[in-house]
Each structure stands twice: as C-alpha cells, then as structure tokens.
Amino acid sequence: MNDAVALTPAGCVAGARPGLAERPELLRLEHVKKRFRGGVEALRDMNLTVNTGDFMSLLGPSGCGKSTALRLIAGLMQPSAGRIEMLSGKGAKHGPDVGPDIGVVFQEPTLMPWARVAENVWLPWRLQGRSYADARDDVLEALKLVGLEKFQRAFPRELSGGMRMRVSIARALVTKPRLLLMDEPFAALDEITRFRLNNDLLALREAIGCTVIFVTHSVFESVFLSDRIVVMGARPGRVIRELEVDAPYPRDEAFRTSATYAAHCREASDALHHAMGEAA
C-alpha cells in the first residue's frame, strides 16, 4: 500500500505514539464469561484492558475463545456474565450493527460478489443510512489507503485473494473507527502474500494511528505486528500472560531477521506452549 494518505479517525493520532504506560484506556473487559446454549464455555473470567494506540494480538491455541472475545467486543454477541466497556465515545452496539466506532475484518473477505469494490466498501455507511453520494469521498479515501483506488469499479471475482482482503480492510476503515478488530485476516493466504500484507498493515497503522486488536495463531505474526501480545489459555479462554514487544516501529524485513525478533518469538512461543498445557 503505497502513497497512503493521513486518515485520522476520532480518537486516533497519526504519527508518533506515546509509550505503553502513557496511553489512556480505550476498552476494558471485566470478568467476562461466555457460555453457548449447547453448554460449551468459551470464555471464563476474562479480564483485559486495551489502551488507545495499542496494536494488540490475541494469541492462543485453537478453540481458546480468541474469535469469541473479538465478537463480544464488536457487539456481535452478548457475554453471559461480566462487563465490556468502551471508555469514551459511543462504544460498541449489541446486535448486527457494530456502529461506526468499531471496524471488523473477518477471516474471509465476505464481499458481496454482485457488487463492485466501491459498493462493498460503502456497505458500513449504507447500513448507517448514508447515501453513496454522501459517502463517496470516504470510500475513495479508504481505497487509497489500501492501494486499490484504481480498482473501485472491479468486481471481487476480478481480484486476487490478497486484494480482496484489502477491500475488506478498506470497508472496515471507511467509517474512520477508533478500534479495528481483525480476526485472523491473513490465515488463508500464502506466506509471501501474508508477509506483504503484514508489512502493509503496519504501514497503514502508521498512517491512521488506530487501535488494533488482531487475532492470530502465529507466534511470528504476533511478534512482527504487535506491541502487546495477550496469550490466552485453552478453553475456557482467559488471559494467561501479557508480553510487550518493545521494538520500535516502523518494522521491516531487517526486524524479521534480528536477534530482538528471535528473542521475542522464543518468549511468545514458550508462553503459548504453557497456555496449551493449561487445564480448564
């Protein structure tokens, strides 16, 4: 994603970010529990604080509730117990409409195949009752951020897998959210495309300054992207450990081969192995 423009949503600050200890709280989960109707307890007593400007990865074994936690934060489902609170602004809405304060990128692009790229990106504003004519500048701005402004009239079938995911990211950003939630968005892509989109995501994050919560199974991806890694235990999910990746941004290929990166990967891997051995 080249020639990114500076997009600064409310509550986001482009450019230099304060240190972790200096960031104001944005989101808080207190004693959150989620039990599904079939009796499966996905989360138990999950406590988490997200600060403005964080790039936080949720790392944990399959089935530990990472995606469930993300959907609860988005307001796409209700917790069985506990409290989720946005500490400023309108906060998450419960139901199918997550509201303009939160953008969500799912594991699959989930684009409308019959609609052109620009119409797919317009969708969040359309659900808010805003016409395309009124939202057009926001749509084009979001597409420019992900390097796809020249593909606004293309259909999803005409794009590569990586390009379709970029459209999904643009759709999540079009409302200028304060919080971007990403649920393993690159897991289905080949390694080369995944590395490229990791690089692009960090460049995008530098441009817009948004808070990001990123779900991943990959130790290497979590270390490359994040300044905070939250390791979750096996089901029922809860926070086992938090790690800080103190390497400065921007990060590039040199960081991936550095001793600092390797050390953080070892630490995260050890924490993940411990989490996988946790008894419910």
Rank of each mutant, 00 (worst) to 15 (best):
M1C: 04
M1G: 14
V5T: 08
A6L: 12
A6M: 12
T8V: 15
P9R: 11
C12P: 00
R17F: 04
L26W: 01
V32K: 04
K34T: 08
R35A: 09
G39P: 05
V40M: 08
A42T: 00
V50E: 06
V50M: 10
N51M: 07
M56D: 03
S57K: 14
L59P: 02
G60R: 04
P61A: 12
G63F: 02
G65R: 13
K66L: 05
T68Y: 00
T68P: 03
A69F: 01
Q78G: 10
A81K: 06
I84E: 05
G89S: 07
A92R: 14
K93W: 11
P96T: 13
P96Q: 14
P96L: 13
V98I: 14
G99Y: 01
G99V: 15
P100F: 02
V104W: 03
V104F: 11
V105W: 00
Q107F: 02
E108L: 09
E108G: 05
P109L: 12
T110H: 09
T110C: 12
L111Y: 00
L111N: 06
W114Y: 04
W114L: 07
A115G: 06
V117D: 08
W122K: 12
W122M: 03
P124A: 05
P124H: 01
W125N: 10
W125Q: 15
L127H: 07
Q128R: 15
Q128P: 04
R130L: 08
S131P: 03
A133M: 02
A133H: 11
D134V: 01
R136K: 14
D138V: 06
L140S: 10
L140H: 12
E141W: 09
A142T: 14
L145M: 13
V146P: 07
G147V: 09
E149F: 02
E149W: 05
A154S: 14
A154F: 10
F155C: 01
P156H: 03
P156D: 03
R157I: 11
G161V: 11
M165R: 00
I169R: 04
A172L: 04
L173H: 00
V174N: 01
T175G: 03
T175R: 12
K176Y: 01
P177A: 12
L179H: 04
L179Y: 00
M182G: 02
F186V: 03
E191Q: 14
R194C: 03
F195C: 12
L197R: 12
L197W: 02
N198W: 00
N199I: 15
L202G: 08
L202R: 09
A203T: 15
L204W: 00
E206V: 13
E206H: 15
G209N: 07
C210L: 01
T211L: 06
I213E: 06
I213M: 06
I213T: 00
V215Q: 01
T216E: 00
H217E: 03
F220V: 14
E221I: 07
V223S: 02
L225C: 08
D227G: 06
I229F: 04
A234H: 05
R238M: 04
R241E: 15
E242Q: 15
E242R: 13
L243H: 05
L243S: 07
E244Y: 11
V245T: 07
P250A: 14
P250G: 14
P250M: 11
R251W: 06
D252N: 12
E253Q: 13
A254M: 03
A254D: 11
F255L: 06
R256H: 05
R266V: 13
S269F: 07
L272T: 02
H273L: 15
M276Y: 05
M276D: 09
M276G: 10
E278M: 15
E278A: 12
